[in-house]
Structures are given as structure tokens and as C-alpha cells.
Simulated assay, not measured.
Amino acid sequence: MNAMMSTSTIFIGGEPAILTLKEKQSIERELYLYHALYRTRGTEYFTAGERISINQERGYHLSVGGEEELRAYQISKDLELKLTVLKKVL
């Protein structure tokens, strides 16, 4: 399924669907986490366990808005701080 996103509308199969604020924030967070993992691949910035935690949160965000939404998952505060520092550097 191909999807393109504008400010608050997502097009799935050519049909527009309005996103809720939660869905929009979730998409933005998932893209942010993906970007952090992509930019640090091949480095030792994140440990293997931290990368797993980030991917688990990404999986949660990919399920938001689905029929069988997963329970909320959030990374630790220490890892969130590490991501914030990385955001300032990149």
C-alpha cells in the first residue's frame, strides 16, 4: 500500500483520509525515530539494546489507528535524552 502525506491528509490508494492529531503525531514520531536509527547506523552511538527499544517504539507508532492497536510503548527517559542530543547535532 503506497501512502503520501500532506499536512493532515493521507492518501491511500488515491482516496484521502483525514488523520487525527494522535495519528499525525505518531507518524512524525515514527519518522523521527527512523531517521535517528538511519543516521547512526554503523556507529556505536546506540547500543544494540537501545536500537531494539527504538524499533519497538517505532512498531507501536506504526500500529496507531489500526483496528487492533497495540498497547502504548515508550522508550526510557535516558534514551529519549540521547535522541534529543542527537537531534541537536544532526
Rank of each mutant, 00 (worst) to 15 (best):
L37Q: 08
K77E: 11
K24E: 13
G13N: 01
L79G: 05
R41S: 14
Y32I: 03
S8Y: 12
I18N: 12
L19Y: 04
K77P: 07
M5E: 05
E68A: 11
M5G: 10
L31V: 15
V89I: 00
I12C: 04
G49N: 15
R71V: 06
G66A: 04
T47M: 07
T20V: 02
E44L: 05
I27G: 08
L81D: 02
E44I: 08
E44G: 14
G14D: 00
K82I: 04
K22Q: 15
Q74S: 14
T47D: 06
L86N: 01
I54C: 10
E80H: 00
E67R: 15
G13M: 06
S53Y: 11
E50A: 08
T20H: 08
S53M: 10
F46K: 03
F46A: 06
I27S: 09
I10G: 11
L31F: 08
I10W: 12
L83E: 00
Y45F: 15
A72G: 05
R71K: 14
S76G: 03
E68V: 06
K24R: 10
Q56M: 11
I75C: 02
S8G: 15
S6W: 05
R39W: 15
E30S: 11
E57I: 10
L90R: 02
V89G: 01
Y73V: 09
F11M: 14
A72L: 05
G65T: 08
T40C: 04
R51P: 14
S6Q: 07
E23W: 05
V89E: 00
E23N: 10
G59L: 12
I27M: 07
R39V: 15
Y32E: 06
T84R: 00
K77H: 00
R41V: 14
K22V: 09
V64Y: 05
V85K: 01
K82V: 02
L21F: 12
K77T: 02
T84I: 01
S63M: 09
A36K: 06
L86P: 00
I10P: 13
I12K: 02
M4H: 07
L79Q: 04
M4Q: 11
L62S: 14
T20F: 14
Y73N: 03
G65Q: 07
I54S: 09
A36Q: 06
E30N: 09
G42E: 11
S26H: 02
P16A: 07
A72M: 03
I18G: 02
V85S: 03
Y38R: 15
G42S: 14
R41T: 12
G42A: 13
M4A: 11
Q56C: 10
H35M: 08
I54G: 08
F11G: 07
S53K: 13
A3W: 06
G66V: 02
E15M: 15
A3N: 13
E80G: 01
H35D: 12
S76T: 10
Y34P: 00
H61I: 12
E28F: 08
E57K: 12
R71G: 03
Q25R: 09
Y45A: 04
D78F: 01
L79I: 01
Q25I: 04
R41E: 15
V64T: 13
Y34C: 07
G59H: 13
L62Y: 12
L21M: 06
G42K: 15
F11P: 11
H61D: 14
E57S: 11
K87S: 04
Y34R: 00
E15Q: 13
V64H: 10
I27V: 10
S53I: 13
L81A: 02
R58H: 11
